[in-house]
Simulated assay, not measured.
Amino acid sequence: MIHEWRTYEAMPGKVAALSTHLEVAAGLFTKHGLGVVGFWTEDVGTGGQITYMWTYASFEERQKKLAAFASDDAWKKQVAEETAKEGVIVARIHNTMLQSTPYSPEPRLKGRVQEWRIYDAVPGKLPDLHNRFANHTLKLFEKHGMENIGYWTEVFGTSNRLVYMLGYPSLGDREKSWASFMKDPDWLQARAESEKNGTLVAKVTNRMLRPTSYSPKG
């Protein structure tokens, strides 16, 4: 399964217009069979962005469905009316093509807060990192109340990168879950055994996200 992670940066003062734009788009995505995992704003950090994730079976399917969406008269009318009223609302669009790992669940959103985490592996260590997640980490996340939403590698770009998303009922629950996870003897043992020949992760980055009102649920 292919997933596409798309982040829209709004022009100054245009976040509300961008949100309206994407809420209308969400209905048309459904009409044209473009599966959407979710729409998010950042809970901590940049306030001028909205991110969403598409899902499809292949790149051929993506091209076909996007072409149908772009030629939809309702969408053309929406864009024309928005442009006349608001002017340019999008400053930049960033997208990343992702491939689900063999151990990834089918992405579904349940919690009120999600976390997007990127692990850049030490060169040559990505297979070991995958093994640790598949055999230990996912089960331990679940044990400590974290929701495993999805795990991916990049189709194009950084070849030693693991990307994943976790869910929580709240930011407070996130703090409690991570604190208990980091002290878990099973985690400490799994990490020690997996790193006998060196550290696996060179860099970790994350974004805290909150679903929009029009984001799919469950």
Results as ranks from 00 to 15, higher is better:
Glu4His: 04
Trp5Gly: 01
Tyr8Thr: 06
Val15Cys: 08
Thr20Gly: 14
Ala25Gln: 07
Ala26Pro: 08
Gly27Asp: 12
Leu28Trp: 03
Phe29Lys: 01
Thr30Glu: 15
Lys31Trp: 10
Leu34Val: 02
Gly35Asn: 14
Val37Ser: 13
Gly38Trp: 09
Trp40Gln: 05
Thr46Gly: 02
Thr46Ile: 13
Ala57Pro: 10
Gln63Asn: 07
Ser71Gly: 03
Asp72Leu: 09
Trp75Lys: 04
Val79Thr: 11
Ala80Trp: 08
Glu81His: 06
Gly87Arg: 08
Val88Met: 12
Val90Ile: 15
Arg92Phe: 12
Ile93Pro: 05
Leu98Cys: 07
Leu98Glu: 09
Tyr103Asn: 00
Lys110Asp: 12
Arg112Asn: 15
Arg112Pro: 00
Glu115Val: 05
Ile118Trp: 02
Pro127Asp: 06
Arg132Met: 14
Asn135His: 13
His136Thr: 08
Gly145Arg: 00
Trp152Val: 03
Phe156Gly: 06
Asn160Ile: 06
Arg161Phe: 01
Arg161Glu: 06
Arg161Gly: 00
Leu162Cys: 04
Val163Asn: 12
Met165Tyr: 07
Gly167Trp: 03
Trp178Lys: 07
Met182Leu: 15
Asp184Arg: 10
Pro185Asp: 11
Pro185Cys: 09
Trp187Arg: 12
Leu188His: 01
Lys196Thr: 07
Gly198Thr: 04
Val201Asn: 05
Ser215Ala: 02
